[in-house]
Design a protein around this nucleic acid. Structure first.
Length: 421
RNA sequence: GUGAGUGUAGCUCAGUCGGCAGAGCACCAGGUUGUGGCCCUGGGGGUCGUGGGUUCAAGUCCCAUCACUCACCCCA
């Protein structure tokens, strides 16, 4: 048979209820902070990601699902959301209606990586982006919102890592100093790091290999190179977070994988997910809007890895699916027809309803109702049809009452209203 | 792209030295001619991932291949 594509995943019940919970909580929480939902498409021109993420990042070099569109444009299944949100922000001139725009977006992303725990080729992110605010208090507020979101989901054991990547004024000096130092020690660096040295020397800092760590042990820190404005900004972010009682760790080795980040960079980590320890990550990208052809507008955002979040939430959340309020047990053709009608009316009136039309024995149907955790069973047989009534059995107490069909909906609601969910 | 591990019933897994394909759970039926759970009895369900090879004989040994898992890489 045809099986699903490698690295892709079916999300089935009861797990889907965890997804609903995670997404609904995000919607409600983010909207409290003034964010509105945006839904950009999943497909974009390849050039959008090449220009925003960076030509020589791994994502663009070898992980994108790119194919030929019409004429000579290449199309790409989005590997991340920020570029699309920025594109939409510019294209629809959203900056014109309000100097500050805040959006969140929820959906699938695609990267052709080798799948492993917490890493799929179709994965899901919840993104939040703010345009038009360069104030450090926005950075702090965004991180506050993110940490509180995790708290609302009862996730514990998370650590916030914080760093500043500087700006085009101060970063070149740091990069130069860093590559100077590392170039003198290439023999101690792994193959990958030698390659990185050329492309993005800052990535050497978060290599996990011991020899690379040694080589970079006394490397300069970006924080020592921050220009006056960036240093002020970073300090203001930290003190605002302190004031909000958000604990964080300064991590001078924290680097973002995408080229467009500036100044504040942060990552939320856990050690409950194996090698994929980042649950969320984000930072400022003050130059991206202009780079993509929009006005000069500062921006900051983050992405939450939903698949990873689900693993953390799922293990702490009970999967108890609610059973039907009323399970119809019809016996015979006439009873089935009547049950179909009344089950529809009851469900339409707002009760969880299930009717079994298999025609199996009463015992079999009772067993199925029990397994589905039905709170009540409505038995309809020849006897009941003759009297135009049905027997409502409470599965917990085993108590039974006979109720008239023409008052079925009202009577059922009277009987189930007191029952716990 | 690289490395390691694992593929046997719907699920979790046994399967000894190469000798009839198994268990638990789940599912179905019966144990009460109209009443679930607990218990008892019975039943259905298999391309042993796939293809080749060795052998009288392969789930078991060999080769290849695919899939999954974990890790590297990268990132959310």
């Amino acid at each position: 048979m045809i099986q699903l594509v490698r690295g892709f995943k079916d999300i089935l019940p009861p797990e889907t209820s965890v997804w609903q919970h995670v997404e609904n909580t995000a919607r409600q929480h983010f909207e409290n902070f003034g964010f509105r939902e945006m839904r950009p498409p999943v497909l974009e021109q390849a050039a959008l990601f090449q220009r925003s993420i960076g030509e020589n990042t791994d994502i663009v070099e070898k992980e994108m699902y790119t194919f030929a569109g019409s004429k000579d444009t290449m199309l790409t299944l989005r590997p991340e959301a920020t570029a699309s949100v920025v594109r939409a922000y510019i294209q629809h001139k959203l900056y014109a209606s309000d100097p500050v725009c805040k959006f969140y977006t929820i959906g699938p992303m695609f990267r052709k990586e080798r799948p492993q725990k917490g890493r799929y080729r179709q994965f899901h992110q919840i993104n939040a982006e703010v345009f038009g605010v360069d104030s450090p208090y926005m950075d702090a507020q965004l991180i506050f919102m993110l940490m509180r979101y995790f708290e609302r989901l009862s996730i514990t054991g998370l650590r916030a890592h914080l760093n500043s990547l500087g700006c085009p004024d101060c970063r070149p000096a740091f990069r130069y100093s860093l590559s100077e130092l590392l170039s003198a020690r290439t023999e101690k660096l792994c193959e990958d790091c030698v390659r990185r040295l050329d492309k993005n020397p800052m990535r050497v800092l978060d290599c996990k290999k011991d020899s690379c760590r040694d080589a970079a042990a006394d490397a300069p820190s970006m924080l020592d190179f921050l220009c006056e404005n960036c240093a002020w900004h970073f300090n203001a972010v930290k003190s605002a977070l302190d004031g909000m009682n958000i604990s964080y760790e300064i991590d001078p080795r924290l680097v973002r994988g995408l080229d467009y980040y500036t100044r504040t960079a942060f990552e939320i980590q856990t050690d409950e997910l194996g090698a994929q320890n980042a649950v969320a990550g984000g930072g400022r990208y003050d130059n991206l809007v202009e780079m993509l052809g929009g006005p000069s507008q500062p921006a900051i955002g983050f992405a939450v890895g939903v698949d990873r979040l689900i693993e953390l939430v799922g293990s702490k959340m009970s999967f108890s699916e609610p059973g039907p309020d009323v399970f119809f047990v019809p016996m015979g053709e006439a009873a089935m027809e009547m049950s179909a009608l009344w089950a529809c009316r009851l469900a339409d009136a707002g009760a969880r309803t299930e009717a079994d039309f298999s025609g199996r024995s009463l015992k079999a149907l009772m067993r199925r109702a029990d397994r589905m955790k039905a709170k009540n069973v409505l038995i309809v047989g020849d006897r009941e049809i003759e009297e135009n009534a049905a027997v409502l059995r409470n599965m917990k107490t085993s108590g039974q009452v006979e109720i008239p069909m023409d008052r079925l909906v009202e009577t059922v609601f009277e009987n189930i209203s007191g029952q716990e969910t």
